[in-house]
Every structure is written in C-alpha cells, then in structure tokens.
Simulated scan of single mutants.
Amino acid sequence: MYAVFKRELFSLLNSLMAYITIGVFLLACGLLLWFFPDTSILEYGYAELSSFFNLAPFLFLFLIPAITMRSFAEERREGTYILLATRPLTDWQIIMAKYLACFVLVLFALIPTLIYCYSVSKLALPAGNIDTGAIIGSYIGLLLLSAAFLAVGIFASSITKNQVVAFALAVFVCFIAYSGFDAMSQIFGFRAIENILLNLSVNEHYQSMGRGVLDTRDLIYFLTFVLAFLGLTKLVIGGRKW
C-alpha cells in the first residue's frame, strides 16, 4: 500500500495540474481576504478569520475535484489500472493509497494559509487577542470537509474514464451535499423534514465545528460520509474487476 501511496503522491506532485489548482486556491484566498473590499478582513474591522472559513468550502468545491479527477479515470484510460489490480493488493488498499495521497496534497494547500492566523493575530488590539479555539475548530472542520469532498471525488473518478466528467460529477455531488440540503430545508413543502435535511447537510456540521465546539455527532457524520463514498468506490472497482 505504501508503494502505491508514494507512487500516487509523486505522480500528483509531478503534474502541473496540482500546482495550478493549489496556486489558484491560494491566489483566490489572498485576493478575497485582503484585496477585495466586500470580503476583505481589513474592511471587516474584526480580527477573525470567519470570512476565510466561509469562502474556503466553495473554493474546495473546485480544488478537490481537480485533484481527484485523475485518480482512477486516468488509470483506466491509459490501461495502467490492470497492472495495479493484478498486484497483491486489496481494493481497499488501492483506494486508501490514492485517497491519502490526495489528502496530503490538500494539506500542502492548507499549510500556507496558516500565515493568515499570524497576520490576524498581529492586527488584533491588543496583539494576539483572537479566538484561538474557534480557529482551531474551523481548521479541523475544514480538514474533515476536505476529507468528505475527497471521498466524493475518488468515487466520481472511479465510475468514468473521462477526467472532465469525473470533475463535473464531483463538483455537482459536493455542491448538493454542502448546500443542497440546506436549500431544500427552506422549501415550504419540506418543512416537516427540515431537521432531517439539516442533519444530512455537510455545511450544518461544518459550521457547528467552526464555533469551536467539537461534537462527536459531527465527527461521526463526517466519518460515515467518507466511509459511505469510499464503500461505493469499492463496489464500483470491485464489480468491474469481477
């Protein structure tokens, strides 16, 4: 499994697409948080990073599918997955190796954003007077959110040979999971099941962690979400191998 993980990670790091997507993500974050007046922290007047944590999920809607779209789709298109499937590896080992490689790449994209915490702490009056608990909780929520989106992206890549189709499908499913259930809960006809729809929403659990409170229900939700889509991926590639 480690050999597949290392191969997949090096493949991602050697691809221009990974650097472009990470660069676009960091550039968009920088422009939205420090230059554009409507979303700038400097115009907000408070030393907090809530604007970053509200914008990051929507940027992840495109960043993460761009990273995962080649995971299985490219292997199938080039025919190299046959060689991988014939090695003494289980389907779960192949899936987890690709999943963890993509997760490490997302970590590389998030690490530079820690400079925002330092900058905001220096801008606070007095310096360092920021809500550290909320920031830590928000970062944990953002990691769990990225883990959920990665599971969706891996699944989307496993069902098609076309990377563009995999990207579009992952963006659509991630958007529905993040914002779709919230929107449906506001529809008058669905008011009777509003609580059920909100409990299914990724955004609801993400915002809950952003308040600095780590609830086991949120952790169980994200773990179940990830396992569900990785399980679907296992069914897809297992059925194709059979």
Results as ranks from 00 to 15, higher is better:
L12G: 11
L13S: 13
A18G: 08
I20V: 15
L26W: 12
L27Y: 09
C29A: 14
P37E: 00
A47P: 01
L49E: 04
L49G: 03
A56M: 09
F58M: 07
L59K: 07
F62I: 15
L63M: 15
P65K: 02
M69Q: 08
R70K: 13
A73G: 04
A73N: 02
E74P: 06
E74R: 10
T86Y: 10
R87T: 12
L89D: 07
D91P: 09
D91T: 14
Q93S: 13
L100P: 06
L105T: 14
I111Y: 10
L114P: 08
L123R: 09
L123P: 04
A127E: 13
A127M: 10
T132L: 12
I135R: 05
I136L: 13
Y139N: 10
L144Y: 14
S146D: 03
S157A: 04
N162T: 03
N162I: 01
Q163K: 09
L169W: 04
L169D: 00
A170Y: 04
V171H: 04
I176D: 01
I176T: 02
S179H: 10
G180I: 03
A192G: 06
L198K: 12
L200Y: 05
N203G: 11
Y206C: 07
S208G: 14
M209L: 15
V213L: 12
L214T: 13
R217I: 12
R217K: 15
D218M: 08
Y221F: 15
T224Y: 07
V226D: 08
L227R: 10
A228C: 09
L230M: 03
T233C: 02
T233P: 00
T233W: 01
L235S: 13
V236K: 11
I237F: 06
